[in-house]
């Protein structure tokens, strides 16, 4: 899966869940208060299912999750490191 494809999927998910159809890829949706209490776990499950990855305790850094760009970068890093078992 190429970089554009990854970002497209993440953008669609994030815009749908935050109900922000014009959310920019670098916008911090946590800081802007666009997310609700269910979103954090929905996002983790989405990333794992969509990209066949395992998000683990080592990945729990806000900078991995707070924007479309950040999540794309995390996914790319993990895919490059070997997918399923990788915990960057």
């Amino acid at each position: 899966m190429d970089q554009t494809n990854i970002k497209d999927k993440i953008r669609a998910f994030v815009r749908d869940k935050t109900k922000q159809p014009n959310l920019a890829d670098d916008e911090d949706f946590f800081q802007k208060g666009f997310v609700n209490s269910l979103f954090a776990m929905q996002l983790v499950l989405f990333v794992e299912k969509e990209f066949q990855l395992r998000v683990g305790d080592d990945d729990l850094v806000l900078e991995n999750f707070n924007s479309t760009n950040a999540i794309s970068a995390l996914v790319e890093r993990k895919l490059a490191a070997g997918g399923a078992d990788s915990q960057t």
Partner: peptide
């Protein structure tokens, strides 16, 4: 500590 500080509610309690 489970996970990281700052994720206690959103991810740890959340799951």
């Amino acid at each position: 500590l489970i996970g990281r500080v700052g994720f206690g509610l959103s991810h740890i309690a959340g799951s």
